[in-house]
Design a protein around this nucleic acid. Structure first.
Length: 422
RNA sequence: GGAGAGAUGGCAGAGUGGUUGAAUGCGGCGGUCUCGAAAACCGUUGUUCUACUAUCGUGGAACCGGGGGUUCGAAUCCCCCUCUCUCCGCCA
């Protein structure tokens, strides 16, 4: 979340940036600042009361020590009054803090000033594109047909065992997935990321820390009995490693990569754009996460973007990079690049990666900070990106590389798949 | 799941009602010494909120797993929760 000092001291900038996300509830911010002014007054009064009480308690102690019990008893009564006063003030203070908090979490992250204004995906900015658009014959098959033709993924079986959106991968389909996972992990490790294997279930504090709670609760599967959430992305556990931590500046940048299953309820999604592998309730993803100094986080973002681009280049997939407009960005992000690959048989661009800088938005929530070389505490910036999400990559690979003789596997994967053709 | 023990600062570890934000050691930082380093010695060493201050800073409040209670006063006493360890059971 945004901090009150930012909203107070850089109000004009905050409003300008929030406008990019079509957040125009300026009165909410005024309300927060008003409540905070009140909070400071009440806190000051309570602190003064407590200080007086502490003073009296000390005096009572020394009076008893020298045997002046009567004088001590007078002071004790005085303290009883102060205690009641402080109790009321403390209650008021808690209430104010709560009111501030409730309002603060409703404010999305302020986008970077370079973010294009806009409301929908149509307003996004294509900032790069790369790769050869495949020329497929007229009878080319979409990946869901290729999947049945070569028996790579079994949706029916998933329906039976679990439900829609939980497919089984079989034979070469399973092997291809495993190959991609290993390829992505190896590439990230080569780029300096440390591999971690995170838990797939997280607690409430973690879901809150990265911003899934409170507003995106419906997106996650819950384990009610134990009050846990299935992760929608490895970003959640991996970023929360650093919750409640103060990192030394020389520990930066922190670079972690994790492969995980991801679970998303995707409530309200249906229709042919979710066919086949386009949208699933459970899927695999390799995620890169960095924690960076505020001065360099946008360089880090570009570095991550380049990493993702390079993966797609090696997979020989045509793609474009989209800078999301304010209206299409997530609540928590300050700047997001989406990577879309062209799935030639569907003739659709499929989002396979989202690379974002959250600036201090997540860090504030999870109390992650940096101590710089002067001993000053400051905000940390968190970033993450898919590198990459598997199902749509598989879809594009199958569709784009289909031939009369079978499906060609890109060269970089041969050593991982053990076969060159399906 | 059953029984017991415990949770203190970056780490180790004292502290069982009164200047204790907390002894001591280690680590970290600064200095003396040295050509330099080590050793030794000296000093320093958390976080959050807040008032005053141009700044350095000074003062106040809170924090000894989390929450509540007793008391003039709680790291210290009481209650609840969470977690960790040991033993037993179960088990990939």
């Amino acid at each position: 979340m945004l901090t009150i000092p930012f909203l107070r001291d850089f109000k004009e900038e905050a409003l300008k940036r929030l406008n990019l996300k079509n957040f125009t509830n300026h009165s909410l911010i005024d309300e927060i600042l008003g409540l905070d002014d009140e909070r400071r007054l009440v806190q000051k009064e309570n602190d003064d009361t407590l200080a007086a009480m502490n003073q009296i308690a000390k005096e009572v102690g020394s009076l008893f020590k020298i045997g002046k019990a009567q004088e001590a008893n007078v002071l004790k009564e005085k303290n009883a009054e102060l205690k009641e006063k402080s109790r009321i003030l403390a209650e008021k203070l808690e209430l104010l803090k709560e009111q501030i908090q409730v309002r603060l979490v409703e404010i999305p992250n302020a986008p970077h000033l370079s973010v294009p204004a806009g409301r929908t995906a149509a307003d996004n900015l294509i900032v790069a594109s790369s790769g050869q658009m495949p020329q497929l014959p007229a009878n080319a098959l979409p990946h869901w047909d290729l999947i049945s033709k070569y028996d790579l993924v079994d949706f029916e079986l998933g329906n039976k065992v679990t439900g829609a959106g939980f497919p089984f991968y079989k034979g070469k389909g399973a092997r291809l997935q495993r190959a991609l996972i290993n390829f992505f992990l190896d590439q990230a490790i080569a780029a300096g990321y440390q591999e971690v294997q995170p838990p797939l279930l997280v607690n409430e504090a973690s879901a809150y820390g990265t911003g899934q709670l409170p507003d995106k609760e419906a997106q996650m599967y819950t384990v009610g009995l134990d009050n846990l959430y299935l992760i929608p992305t490895a970003e959640v556990p991996v970023t929360n490693i650093y919750r409640d931590r103060i990192l030394q500046e020389n520990e930066l940048p922190v670079k972690n990569v994790a492969y995980s299953n991801c679970f998303r309820r995707e409530a309200g999604s249906w229709g042919k754009h979710v066919r086949g592998l386009n949208r699933l309730h459970q899927f695999d993803k390799v995620e890169i996460v960095q924690i960076a100094h505020p001065d360099t986080s946008y360089e880090v973002l570009e570095e991550m973007r380049a990493h993702v681009a390079q993966l797609l280049d090696r997979l020989e997939l045509p793609y474009r990079v989209v800078k999301l407009c304010g209206g299409d960005m997530s609540f928590a992000s300050a700047l997001t690049y989406d990577f879309e690959v062209y799935s030639a048989a569907q003739q659709m661009w499929l989002e396979v990666s989202s690379v974002s800088n959250f600036e201090g938005f997540q860090a504030n929530r999870m109390k992650l900070r940096i101590k710089d070389k002067n001993g000053q505490i400051q905000q940390a910036h968190t970033l993450n990106g898919s590198a990459l999400a598997l199902p749509r990559i598989v879809a594009a690979l199958l569709e784009n590389n289909q031939t009369e003789e079978g499906i060609n596997i890109p060269q970089v994967l041969h050593q991982y798949t053990g076969f060159e053709k399906i």
